[in-house]
Amino acid sequence: MKLYDVYVQKSVRWSSAVLLAFTVFVAEGAYIGPGSGVSSVPDSGDGTTTVAAILKNPQDDRRVVLRGNLVRKIKHETYLFNDGTGEIIADIDDHDFPPQPVTANTKVEIIGEVDVDRVSVVEIDVKSLRIISK
């Protein structure tokens, strides 16, 4: 009889743990406040945002779309990007550049993620770059 009681107790504990985990999982999906991945950084409706909005409320790993110019190369794969509202560092791998040359006057669209490091430097880790106009 004791073995049966131990089995029932373990089953109840395990079931409770699973139910609790499921409840937390479901509750997380409905939460849209800080830490949820849903951002309060405004965008224009087409997915684009501005450097000023990102710098005002930087959220690590937030996906962003920016349009502007690479105004200068800082070092290998590191550029200064300006969209008219502000400037931000953009880390762009060489293989993400299109085959056409990009100058400081070339309007580009970059898609990437906000990267906030430990000393509060905000950068964009660029995943895609395309030329909008020369």
Rank of each mutant, 00 (worst) to 15 (best):
A52S: 14
V71Y: 06
G45Y: 00
D125A: 06
G84Q: 01
G29K: 03
K127I: 04
A53H: 05
T23F: 07
N105P: 07
D60Q: 15
M1E: 08
A30C: 06
L20G: 05
S15D: 14
A52H: 02
V65Y: 07
A52P: 00
R118E: 14
A90N: 04
G86W: 00
S120M: 09
A104Q: 06
Y79F: 09
E109T: 08
S11W: 11
L55I: 14
I110G: 00
V119D: 15
V102E: 08
A27N: 06
T49Y: 04
D61L: 13
D93W: 02
V26D: 00
S44C: 14
F97Y: 13
I92D: 07
V8Q: 01
V41L: 03
S15H: 15
G112H: 01
H76S: 11
D91S: 07
D43C: 01
S40A: 14
S128Y: 01
P99L: 05
R67F: 07
V38W: 15
R67E: 12
G45P: 02
V38D: 15
T103M: 02
V6H: 15
A104D: 06
G45K: 00
G33Y: 05
I111V: 10
D46G: 12
G47Y: 01
D94C: 14
D46R: 08
N69G: 01
G33D: 09
V116K: 12
P99Q: 10
V116L: 15
D46V: 08
I74N: 04
S128K: 10
Q100H: 13
R62I: 03
T50H: 06
F81E: 00
Y7K: 12
D5C: 07
F25D: 05
S133L: 05
N82A: 03
T85F: 04
D117M: 09
G84M: 03
K2H: 10
N105E: 11
K56Y: 08
K107S: 06
G33Q: 07
T50D: 02
T23Y: 09
N69R: 10
R72E: 10
V71L: 10
I32F: 13
Q9A: 15
V122S: 10
K56D: 13
K73I: 05
L3T: 09
T50I: 06
V122L: 04
D5M: 08
L55V: 11
H95I: 15
S128M: 13
T49I: 02
V18I: 10
V114R: 06
V51T: 05
H95C: 15
D93V: 12
V71D: 08
V108Q: 01
D61W: 06
T78C: 03
T78A: 03
V71F: 03
